[in-house]
Amino acid sequence: MIAVNDLSVRLNGQLILHQVSLKARPGDVTVLLGPNGSGKTTLLLSLSAQITPQEGHILLADQPLAELKTRDLAQVLAIVPQEHHPVFPYTVREVILLGRLSRVGFWSQPGARDREVVTEIIELLGIKHLADKPYTRISGGERQLALLGRCLAQEPLVLLLDEPTNHLDFRNQVMILQLIGNLAHRQGLTVLLTLHDPNLALVFADQVILLAAGRIVAQGRPADVIGPETMAQLYGLEVGMLCQGEQRLLYPKLT
């Protein structure tokens, strides 16, 4: 579970997040929507303790974030970063194995159990063919999967993803979101991710949070929150909507 109370973040004197409060439940995929610069990434970075907020409280799985040590935090929360440039060409398997770091003693090496976990994850993600390839020479989508695998190897309770659909083609976007959804629903993971496409949020989210200029403007079920009016307001754009039974599709109205 993620519970955020009155979170305010200032970076270089600029107010990025303003009294943000939100809740993300275990077993749900919670999607953050908001235009560029609305503070989505800052929110994720605050949740993963890479930014220290000026005000507010963050609870992760009922534990105050401020009291978690780096190592304990890694056992509770995993984050898939937006972009990542490794220096050395580790294999995908070696990258995923690093997720076990917080669960292995300081002066120890990963053991049989850790390798087992990694093998299971590789099978779960269906990336057996990538396992022994250098992480630096695979496509962006494959790298996203490898990083997701590394996060799963941490066996976290909370999973954060910053634009997991970035650089992915249509099929891979759907594939990775479906996978994340299954993980949340089956394993009771609390998932919070950012997206740019409201249509994907309509399909995959259990809960949606709208963020504009560092403030939360709406929070609720996707069908309630995502509509032509709210999207028009959020992105400053004329938006239309097509409905077919339960399905909805938003599209930009060009003038």
């Binding site: 993963s48 303790a49 890479q50 040590k69 780096t70 190592r71 304990d72 935090l73 890694a74 056992q75 995993a78 984050i79 970063p81 990542h84 440039h85 490794p86 220096v87 050395f88 580790y90 070696e94 690093l98 997720g99 770091l101 917080s102 292995v104 300081f106 002066w107 090496q109 990963p110 590394r150 941490q154």
Partner: peptide, 24 residues
């Protein structure tokens, strides 16, 4: 030699290493 595996994490960069549980 004892910390050799952790060097893999260190070489990923500060933010990454921290996310993996390394007190950088």
């Amino acid at each position: 030699w004892l910390g050799r595996w952790r060097l893999n994490a260190m070489s990923m960069g500060e933010a990454e290493a921290r996310a993996l549980g390394v007190d950088v």
